[in-house]
Design a protein around this nucleic acid. Structure first.
Length: 649
DNA sequence: GTTTCGGTTCTTTTT
DNA sequence: GAACCGAAAC
């Protein structure tokens, strides 16, 4: 093992935190102050102290962050130790639950519902109670309310009352729907994302022997991005670190941007209350950005009325450069041309395409720009709104694997059957009942019953699929997810895809990609469980092709969290776009969060920061709408930016 | 009673 | 693009 000169390789603030002894610790790390570095060195420090990596728990926001952290720590330590217990909250919760789910009356191979599954199920509930009407809240709203209740441990009725306030909504009907949804989920033996956390917490609370086992095991618990944890997650952390109490949490309350998902930056503020002996370390020395970018960031914090004691003032270490630019543009079209022009300008100055990013509040803000970049032959990658594993064709493949590995998976059965012509949800549900609420693909009788029950038009198509089901059991393909998918594609899906998708080619490419991905796993179960928790970012980061690696990145601000680029261009920094009107309408808290989002966006920049504010929005009905620059620009002191009105290019 | 298809409307942020 | 709704087609 390498010896590391911790004191020399870190600054004083970072060193103090990384080498601290035992007990609860809160690291308040402002943007670009080496937060990840500190965490990595902390891990390395613990390893150098002889702590067994098996006895550490490293919770991060994304799988990518966990991976990066472990890789960097390994490099530092000089041998591949790995931290076996590292990953997202959902990952860890899932891992614990898979072992003990029966204690909560779930099967150990419970199914994980993704967003799509949840939405379908919710729609069913509304239908079943005959509540569909224009007036009744949409299923996304219903899911949101349920999510808020779950994540903040609020009673359903209260959450409903909070959300609908004095609006004219039948709250009792809403309650009935949500209860039905919960019951159905239970019946399906399925957990959605929130359930995994809630149930893990429940498990630890109600089963002391399980809790003690993990609390004893995890001698050191480290949490990244603590400001984005919700109540459930914070409580999970408390229990898991409950025995040794060596809890090391890192976060920046001013970068809390997930309150709509129940995240509560007060977890940071209240940390000291929960752990009165907690030590607090502040990291304020910024290594990332030029002082002018930091001046803007500090001004944004200054305009916010954020609690004084948690305020961090970013101290610059880099030399003076020049101010961020505010570009006043005519409209979206003009903005797109301007961005292309700026990109070319920066490339002439020596920046590579991968040094640059375009950030925006919502995915659809980037549409015009995508066109312009394509027309101008500027290489670019988009961290798309649609995740790889949520796309229809990928889910179609996965549902076959689900049906094979779990006879009780009604949702997967439904999806698979609906691929057949003339079969819809209704038919699928009837067949499911007829089969006895389970479809055991290893049972030849069940298979032939299904085949014979199908209507004429669907039978010949299913005859192509049936042999694959048989082969799965006969040829013992339970490890060969890729082979199954390949056969399914050849025998059935290829024809289906040609008829259904205009972008047939790229979808087939995706499926090939999926086949490759499945080969990394030992079993289909493991693969499915893993895939359900992966995000597009995690999948994409691994599979970037060389030309994608050398491309401009387009991303939402949320997805850019934790990353940095020499050149950052923010588009649609106008009222009505950023801040998002929906958030601002809701409450003051909404505006505060949008401001934090703006801060996150700005602090991604190392050298160049360009803020674009078009003056006109072209609406889809052909009308035009005048927009003011974003309030987050207007509230800045004049000297912080250099403003320019751009004419036609 | 179901399914499918075509027209219409609206896009927040994610594990 | 995709989700929703209504009406035609099975």
């Amino acid at each position: 093992m390498k010896t590391i000169d911790f004191e020399n390789e870190l600054n004083a603030e970072q060193f103090a935190a990384a080498s601290a002894g035992e007990g609860p610790m809160l690291i308040l790390a402002a943007a670009g102050t080496g937060k990840t570095r500190t965490l990595v060195y902390r891990v390395a420090y613990l390893v150098s102290q002889g702590i067994d990596p098996e006895r550490m728990l490293l919770l991060t926001f994304t799988n990518r962050a966990a991976k990066e952290m472990v890789e960097r720590a390994n490099e530092l330590v000089g041998h591949p130790a790995g931290i076996p217990w590292s990953g997202t909250f959902h990952h860890i919760a899932n891992r614990i639950l898979r072992r003990h789910a029966t204690l909560l009356d779930y099967r150990n191979n419970y199914t994980i519902m993704d967003r799509d599954d949840s939405r379908k199920l919710m729609a069913n509930c509304v239908k079943e109670l005959k509540l569909q009407s224009k007036e009744f809240p949409k299923r996304d709203v219903l899911l949101h309310v349920l999510g808020m209740a779950t994540n903040s441990e609020q009673a359903l009725g209260d959450a409903i009352a909070d959300h609908f306030d004095d609006h004219d909504v039948d709250q009792r009907a809403v309650l009935a729907v949500l209860k039905l949804y919960i019951a159905k989920k239970r019946e399906l033996d399925a957990m959605d994302f929130d359930d995994m956390l809630v149930n893990c917490l429940k498990l630890l609370r109600e089963h002391p022997s399980v809790r003690d086992r993990y609390a004893m095991q995890f001698q050191y618990v480290l949490v990244d991005e603590y400001q984005d944890t919700n109540r459930i997650q914070a409580e999970l952390v408390n229990l898991l670190a409950g025995h040794h109490k060596n809890l090391f949490v890192v976060g920046d309350d001013f970068q809390s941007i997930y309150s709509w998902r129940g995240a509560d930056y007060r977890n940071i503020i209240d940390f000291k209350l929960r752990y009165p002996d907690a030590r607090i370390y502040k990291l304020e020395t910024n290594y990332r950005s030029v002082p002018e970018v930091l001046a803007l960031a500090n001004a944004t914090v200054g305009a916010s009325g954020h609690p004084e004691e948690f305020r961090k003032t970013l101290r610059a270490t880099r030399e003076a450069y020049h101010s961020p630019t505010v570009a006043r543009l005519r409209d979206g079209e003009h903005q797109a041309r301007f961005v292309v022009d700026r990109i070319q300008h920066f490339m002439r100055e020596g920046y590579r395409p991968s040094d640059m990013v375009v950030l925006y509040r919502a995915h659809f803000h980037a549409m015009e720009l995508q066109l312009a970049l394509t027309r101008g032959h500027v290489p670019h990658v988009i961290t798309s709104g649609m995740r790889f594993f949520e796309q229809a064709h990928i889910k179609d493949m996965l549902c076959l694997l689900r049906v094979l590995s779990c006879p009780e998976d009604a949702l997967a059965f439904d999806r698979l059957l609906c691929l057949l012509p003339g079969v819809g949800t209704m038919t699928a549900q009837k067949l499911w009942k007829k089969l006895g609420n389970r479809f055991d693909t290893s049972d030849p009788e069940a298979r032939s019953l299904l085949l014979n029950s199908l209507r004429k038009g669907a039978q010949p198509r299913w005859e192509k699929v049936d042999p694959i089901l048989a082969a799965y059991h006969d040829e013992e393909l339970s490890r060969e997810g890729g082979t199954i998918i390949q056969r399914f594609l050849d025998a059935f899906y290829d024809t289906y895809a040609v008829d259904s998708f205009e972008n047939y080619d790229s979808r087939i490419d995706d499926i090939r990609e999926l086949v490759l991905h499945t080969e990394k796993f030992d079993s289909i179960e493991q693969c499915l469980s893993d895939v359900a928790l992966l995000t597009n970012l995690d999948a994409e980061a691994e599979n970037l092709s060389p030309d994608q690696r050398n491309a401009i990145r387009l991303s939402t601000v949320h997805q850019a969290k934790g990353l940095e680029w020499p050149v950052v261009i923010i588009i649609w920094a106008t009222e009505g776009m950023f801040p998002s009107p929906r958030s601002v309408n809701e409450s003051d808290e909404g505006e505060a969060e949008e401001r934090r989002l703006f801060y996150v966006a700005a602090t991604r920049a190392k050298d160049e920061l360009v803020l674009c504010t078009p003056e006109v929005r072209r609406m889809r009905d052909g009308g035009i709408m005048y927009c003011q620059p974003s309030r987050f620009i207007e509230e800045l002191p004049v000297e912080v930016t250099s403003s320019r009105r751009i004419g036609f290019i």
